[in-house]
Nucleic acid binder design. Structure first.
Lengths: 230, 230
DNA sequence: GCATATTTGTCCGTATGTATA
DNA sequence: CTATACATACGGACAAATATG
């Protein structure tokens, strides 16, 4: 048989789940690849070879290529002509822009939350979940709770399009997280800070909450940028 | 030969320009379709039949399908399983959400502009261009100048991702504009209002500028919603 | 730098299923 | 209900670009 060329391991794509459902095959393929990427099973920079993906999913190359086009528009993969498709590598400039965007938008959500007791309750709940997960040492769950916290903030703006922008933005951030091997150092500090934010809001001190949020975002940005240098 | 079925006229796609360049064929096809849609040559609701598009562009159906997947992610077309691809129809709910988003984000840009004389100059220039076009009766150019004005606002935020969100959002708005047959009634009122906004900013009255911007956005939303009811 | 192998890009033909007149 | 047009999906083919030894 053929010697495995393996610039990238042949089984990088082996665990893709079997497809089933009533959406189109290419959409199911895109879903499977999306899950694999966001769960960190496919690392940034890894190449997705058409034939390997097609074989792993039991579908044709043409259908795989359709899935690639969709994922490319989502920013999860990069397409280079005649070279192929690779899991997106997030640059330092991307991180800077992502956090600039967050610092602009999340305060809008925070001020919207201030008027809504139910939103404050939802935020409190995610902080509690994060604290529980942190005590259990489940840093992946802590990271998820952090994302839910900030997504809840944005949701309070009431704009679907802003919500979708943030989903995409968080998907990119996950790609940056994937490069960091220390989930604890990454997520632990922010459990307490989210708690402070929500307590400020609950106390009606919206400006203090915004200041804390801004500090949180600046520190998180600096931490990821530092981790990206290696 | 085959009788033309023509739920949609066969030549709806006939004017697609010939492809050429150094990007992939499917990307060039997507570009050509994107231009046709944003320029209003392909109306919302029109079906893009694979074979017709492939024939018009002189490419294969597989390649057309790849282009469709990309355009679908951009929100320019809608994909319905086993029915095909249609130019996106913007709903009233979409319009409401789009303007909600604009009312959240554009004030951020307006406050950022206030500190930058060069940005104020750029805004002034687009207003002048709009006034010139209005005197000439070129309402398409007036519409373009309006878009440039508000895009300049958002640009002042300094976030690429916000800029891209707005590009997409304006692309959707163009789909809504395509349903309106009176370009003059649509664009004329806003030439003067953009002028007021920029004069407030130049005078250091940022809050007055924001109030005028908010009123502008509410009126524009109401006008489009009214036109959409028919 | 060159020859070769691999992979992508693109096309075609075709079979099957689905929605609509 | 049937017929038809169309989308879905596959597999094979070949050229062109890229990677490899």
């Amino acid at each position: 048989m053929v010697a495995v060329p393996a610039r990238v391991p042949e089984d990088a794509v082996a665990g893709l789940r079997t497809l089933s459902g009533r959406s189109s095959t290419s959409e199911q393929a895109a879903d499977a690849l999306r899950r694999h990427i966001t769960e960190g099973l496919l690392r940034p920079g890894a190449q997705l070879r058409e034939e390997a993906v097609a074989a792993a999913l039991g579908i044709s190359r043409n259908t795989v290529r359709e899935a690639f086009r969709a994922l490319s528009r989502e920013g999860l993969v990069e397409h280079t002509l005649h070279r192929g498709v690779f899991v997106r590598r997030i640059s330092a400039a991307d991180v800077v822009d992502i956090y600039r965007t967050r610092r602009l938008l999340e305060p809008l959500g925070l001020r919207a939350v201030a008027d809504r007791p139910r939103a404050v309750a939802a935020l409190t709940q995610t902080v509690t979940a994060a604290e529980t997960a942190a005590r259990a040492g489940d840093w992946a769950a802590v990271g998820t709770a952090d994302i839910v916290f900030h997504r809840t903030l944005v949701d309070a703006c009431g704009s679907d399009r802003l919500g979708r922008l943030f989903d995409q933005l968080f998907a990119e951030l996950r790609l940056a997280f994937a490069v960091i091997d220390e989930p604890r150092a990454l997520h632990e500090p922010y459990v307490g800070r989210n708690g402070r934010i929500v307590r400020f809001v609950a106390a009606g001190r919206a400006e203090d909450a915004c200041a804390e949020l801004d500090a949180y975002l600046r520190d998180a940005e600096a931490q990821i940028l530092a981790a990206l240098d290696d």
